[in-house]
Amino acid sequence: MNTGGKSHFAAGLSFYTLIAVLTVVSLAPFYAMIVMGTYDSFQLFRFNGLPSDYILHNFATISKTEFPTFMKNSLVMSLSSVFFSLLASALCGYGFAKFRFKGNKMLYNLVLFTMMVPSQLSIVAYVYEMKLFHLNDSLVPSILPYVFAGFGVFWMTQYIKDIVPTEVLESARIDSAGEFRIFFSIVVPMITPAVITLGLLNFVWSWNSFFVPLVTINDSRLFTVPLGINSFNSLYYQDNGAKILALSIATMPVVLLYLIFSNRLQSGLTAGAVKA
């Protein structure tokens, strides 16, 4: 009994240590990033874990660059991705969940199948297609992949099936409400939680996206933050301090959203595994 208690205590202690180490490892790079952003580049090697007073200089350096434009481009891209993907996937999910048209099941399975196909499969022709439509060097090619992402449709279909009662739709039809009015004034208010979650996920994915902007945007005025940060390398080649501050600022929107809505984001990201 006594030894059991002791070994239990030892196991608990070692587990707490492990948790503490993992917490430090998870957070340390963030802390390092935020603090290093306050340093003069030439002082970076003297990094001692405490903030420096150089942050305003770095801030001035950043605001003189195109970084504000990069932030604006990223914001436009991410918000457009959110809006159009929500519209397309809510409409489509409602169609799959509440209408028994011919081919419903087959088309839904097709959507699920596209979730497994790597996005790079079509990239060569996609870039050419964008050139043909004169959409190259715009934010459109970076927005579209979120509009045709199967995950949104999957998420909306499941949610609408679970939440929206068919009887409500039936009685609205008896009151002869139009199908699109039913969708926008009855269904949309009922699925707001799912809309918010999916919107957050799309914002995070779009904000972090790198590959598609990399192959479709050449004009530096249209660079999103990930591409722009990369261009700091050649423009301000010595100023790592300013660059890290820019990174801290670029990470902020996503981290803030995460801190505020962590439960929603977590439930959205586990949906595929738990529900499928």
Binding site: L22, T23, S26, L27, P29, F30, A32, M33, V204, W207, N208, F210, V225, P226, I229, N230, K243, I244, L247, S248, A250, T251, V254, V255, Y258, S262, L265, Q266, L269
Partner: peptide, 17 residues
């Protein structure tokens, strides 16, 4: 909540960091 933070961080920041 803490351990999930790295998952949402911008890859470019992670790379540079």
């Amino acid at each position: 909540a803490i351990s999930f933070l790295p998952y949402v961080t911008t890859p470019v920041a992670v790379g540079v960091l």
